[in-house]
Simulated scan of single mutants.
Amino acid sequence: MLSADATRLAVWGDPIAHSRSPQLHTAAYALLGLPWTYERRRVSETQFGAALADTTETWRGLSLTMPLKHVAAKAATVLDRAAQLSGAVNTLVPGDAGIRGFNTDVAGLVAAIREQGIERAVHGTVLGAGATATSALLALEALGAREVEIRARRPDAAGHLVALGASLDLHVTAVPLDAPRTHPDARTDPALTIATLPGDAELPASVLDAVVVPGGLLVDVVYGSWPTPLAAAWEGAGGQAVSGLPMLLHQAVRQVRIFTTGDVDEPLPSESVIVASMRRALMED
């Protein structure tokens, strides 16, 4: 149980000045009538252990961004399923039984995709094989995909994703970014692609020809300038592209649930109103 005096929250990472989490969380707690504070703090991976040990009973919880998600997972006493499978934690909550760790990125990505009208994915494609690609794979599993193609600059770097897929009874293959497309056109077989590449990545024409699916949905999980070169090419081919902002919003909603009740699956009171306020705060930044 958290003390009633536990009113401090923050997002930690390095860099951290760009984080929009304070706007999102502050909007939610204002509507909930909670006098909590939520701040940014620059904490590097080497500083994390000491910073965590220095927290007191006034701390209600932490949001974590890169590069702290894996060290946060190791610091947690109990992990939710998404955190266990991904080895990444973006939410820490102290308690009498220890520190609980959550990965709300997966559920946030699922919610963002469903917001675009896709309730179930027949198959999915992930661009990139880094840390975020793991959450993307788990989101596709949650959407019911049974086949997932990982496209990466170095397909051999996707071995952990292939192994994770096998443990989940998913057929996961890893191919180069510019490998010929094997799935049908999205106009006859709706397709979903999740890009986890750097937002400023300049992709050669051979890669764009291979990855862009006319009529398909691209979720490009970046928060910076928009559209990215990939998103621009996607929309130019008649597809729909959305940024990572909806994912950021919905993962934060689940963090608010955790910080208020401890239950990631229990909706907030008047949650639709709170989500709308958080979305306005995000768009106003």
Rank of each mutant, 00 (worst) to 15 (best):
I150T: 02
L249D: 05
S272E: 15
A17H: 14
L230F: 06
G199Y: 09
L79A: 03
W36G: 11
A166P: 01
A131I: 00
P35D: 15
E119C: 04
L32E: 09
G124P: 06
S44P: 08
R20C: 06
A179D: 11
G33E: 08
P155H: 05
A129W: 01
D263T: 02
S3D: 12
G165W: 03
A129D: 03
V172M: 06
A97C: 02
S225A: 14
R181C: 10
A51F: 02
G130K: 09
A163T: 13
V175D: 01
D5E: 15
P155F: 02
H171A: 13
I118C: 02
W36T: 04
L9N: 09
L79P: 04
A252N: 06
A112P: 02
V256R: 05
G61V: 08
A174K: 08
T56S: 15
E39W: 01
I274P: 09
A252G: 09
Q23D: 13
I99T: 10
R154K: 05
L92Y: 00
A112N: 05
T26C: 14
E39R: 13
D169I: 08
M278A: 09
T173V: 14
R8G: 00
L92W: 01
L208H: 11
G238L: 13
M66P: 05
S135I: 01
H123E: 10
D80N: 13
L2C: 00
L192H: 10
S19Y: 07
A179L: 01
L248E: 04
R280L: 05
L268I: 02
A28N: 11
P190I: 13
D209E: 15
A201Q: 13
A276K: 07
V78T: 15
V43T: 02
A121P: 03
E115P: 00
S225N: 12
L2V: 09
D285A: 10
R60L: 02
V211T: 12
L9V: 06
P267D: 09
S167I: 00
L31Q: 15
R181E: 12
T56M: 11
A27N: 11
T260I: 07
A205N: 03
T58K: 09
L192A: 08
W36Q: 06
V126F: 03
D96Y: 00
G165H: 06
A121H: 05
L34A: 14
A4Y: 10
D156S: 14
G87L: 03
G238C: 13
V213M: 05
V256M: 05
S21D: 03
D105H: 10
A158T: 01
E141N: 14
W36F: 14
V106M: 07
W59A: 00
I258Y: 00
A205I: 11
T77N: 13
P229Q: 01
A232P: 02
T228I: 09
T173P: 00
A241D: 10
G33W: 10
T261R: 11
Y38F: 14
G49R: 03
G215R: 10
S19N: 10
V222Q: 13
S135Q: 01
L62N: 00
R151P: 01
V148W: 00
